[in-house]
Design a protein around this nucleic acid. Structure first.
Lengths: 336, 336
DNA sequence: AAATAATGTGTAAACGTTTTTATAAACCTT
DNA sequence: AAGGTTTATAAAAACGTTTACACATTATTT
């Protein structure tokens, strides 16, 4: 049997109230009794039950983290950051995976979170349909649980997003600065449409026509990157650079370019997005857009903990964070 | 205010005991009352408090997962597998990171786990010193919490390990089969020593002398892989292949080989370990040893849940799982 | 020295469930 | 129709804490 506060009280010869008092050192306790109690705690190796406490405080000191999946470098870095910050603030992380945004799974998870009375939730898994957004929103209101969202927003709930329009724009402007005027895009619906909007915006800003024939849509994988690039290279469309909506696509594209016997960046420049580790492992190293993950996680955690104290204070905070570009070896001036 | 079982009872016009009975449908309840109660539950959107339940059942339906870090492909894949399996079994995963095996952090985590009365713990973070192993072991006994360990063992606690001696041996035998007789090793103390033992065992088995001068120790990073290989290539020691204790080292080694103007595998064959995704992104694709992660996670979860019911039943289970080799483009016959 | 304030500690209620025990009503037996 | 079962429900105790309240002691004021 676990030792309880009662055992400690008995051994120390005091009431359980007194033990509780030294445990929480809130009320004042006589120095001698305090010592006696502390010795008893030591002797019995007493660990107060967090769940009994939760019954009274309505606090579990546990936060739910809901992400699409973990076997993806972006999300695992992200989750690592969240876990560390929460731990530093005295909270424990309950990890939930939404199986790549399955809404049924999300609903089941929300129910579990409510049953477990978690202190808050960080929502990173994006509902796909508008009615799902509404349903999720209603669930959170009904559950009355502090929440923050990442990469999407819900009415009245603080959010953090990356500015992917700016990110996409920055990638393309980098290419334009190198003299490129025919730039291809490889992306797809599973990655935020914003990156493509940035691609278009850069063209607009610099008065360069955007060639629809150079745009390829598909799954965000190395395989599709390779296939898409292969198609682009076979076509007679001239293009001297390609912007890929994520690094995996870019790595695939690089393979196709090399397979065709072309040089990077002399023949074709390539820009990726996300800055996964593999960017440094490919040859040449991949120029890419890097997301400010440390800042993102910090804002999410801090905002959530503030929301716990007073939601109205932060409910209108919607951060949009700028990307940065990491220039490496896959981009260079257009051939003379 | 949260709606409680009391509210439901009132609305349905029954006692809270009856509500509890339909909730757990254990005892028999009249069909009519059951319906009334279920309607009341619906109407109030009642979600029973897991923590109040925990007080009585001594079950939190939460398992602690303690890993060294998440921003490492092996561990994030691993954690993803564990989370999915636990969810399927009706458990929630509480994630803890030991900051790359800091023992102080591990102790703090163990205390938290005990306070929170988690139902069990999957320990993947390896204490470094023998006295730490002993201390951890004592903590688990004192906490009386079901546990399983991964990649190390504690007395009386079930464990799952990869057979890295066999894995290392398999890697080297693959090279030997290709005719290689001078094989270098790049590894280090931060990766299980077993892989090096496998390297040696393969030499022994095939009666090939193991050349100590071809062994390089350092941090398990791409950078060290590159530096180590550079040294090996500069030395006048002849070697036609290198076995790296993980894929990052192998990727670094490949860079150094290419930088020297040599061809893989024509001039030097390379074998890695772990099968990270980047293996497929480098040119040529990296031959490597793959760990049976799905089987590992399955055994850990199943054994832990059995241990919860009856520890003595499983306490002597110590699984050692064989590795497999994934042959790709970095290994080939030794030059004639 | 009496009145008042400050200090320290115990008692008991509360948190939201499950479960044991008790009891009433309905159903069988004969 | 009396006794014995079965069925359905309620009342109350329990889980391990915190905390409001009460009370006794001691210290400080006047």
């Amino acid at each position: 049997m676990k030792t309880t506060i009662k055992d400690v009280a008995e051994l120390a010869g005091v009431s359980i109230a007194t033990v509780s008092r030294v445990l929480n050192n809130k009320d004042r306790v006589n120095a001698n009794t305090r010592k006696k109690v502390q010795q008893a705690i030591q002797a019995l190796d007493f660990k107060p039950s967090t769940i009994a406490r939760s019954m009274i405080n309505n606090e579990t000191h546990t936060i739910g983290l809901l992400i699409p999946l973990l076997s993806n470098e972006f999300w695992s870095n992200f989750a690592e950051g969240i876990e560390q910050l929460l731990w530093d603030h005295g909270y424990t992380t309950n990890l939930f995976m939404a199986d790549n945004n399955s809404f049924d799974k999300m609903k089941a998870i929300m129910k579990t979170i409510e049953n477990k009375r978690l202190d808050g939730i960080i929502l990173c898994s994006v509902p796909q349909l508008p009615e799902q957004v509404k349903e999720l929103s209603e669930m959170i209101v009904a559950a009355n649980i502090p929440a923050v969202t990442f990469e999407f927003s819900l009415p009245g709930i603080p959010s953090v997003k990356g500015d992917h329009i700016q990110g996409g724009c920055m990638a393309v402007e980098h290419l334009i600065r190198f003299g490129h005027r025919s730039i291809a895009y490889i992306g797809g619906p599973e990655i935020s449409i914003a990156r493509e909007m940035g691609f278009r915006q850069a063209h607009l800003l610099h008065n360069i026509p955007c060639q629809e024939a150079l745009i390829q849509y598909g799954k965000p994988t190395v395989d599709f990157g390779r296939e898409a690039m292969k198609k682009l290279l076979v076509s007679d469309m001239i293009h001297t650079a390609v912007f890929c909506a994520n690094d995996l696509l870019a790595i695939g594209a690089m393979e196709a370019i090399h397979a065709r016997g072309l040089q990077i960046p002399q023949d074709v420049s390539v820009v990726g997005y996300d800055n996964i580790k593999a960017c440094e492992y490919v040859t040449p190293q991949l120029t890419t857009i890097v997301q400010p993950v440390p800042q993102m996680t910090r804002l999410l955690v801090e905002t959530l903990l503030e929301a716990k104290d007073d939601l109205s204070h932060v409910s209108n905070r919607n951060f949009i964070l700028p990307m940065e570009i990491k220039v490496r070896g896959t981009t260079g001036p257009v051939k003379a």
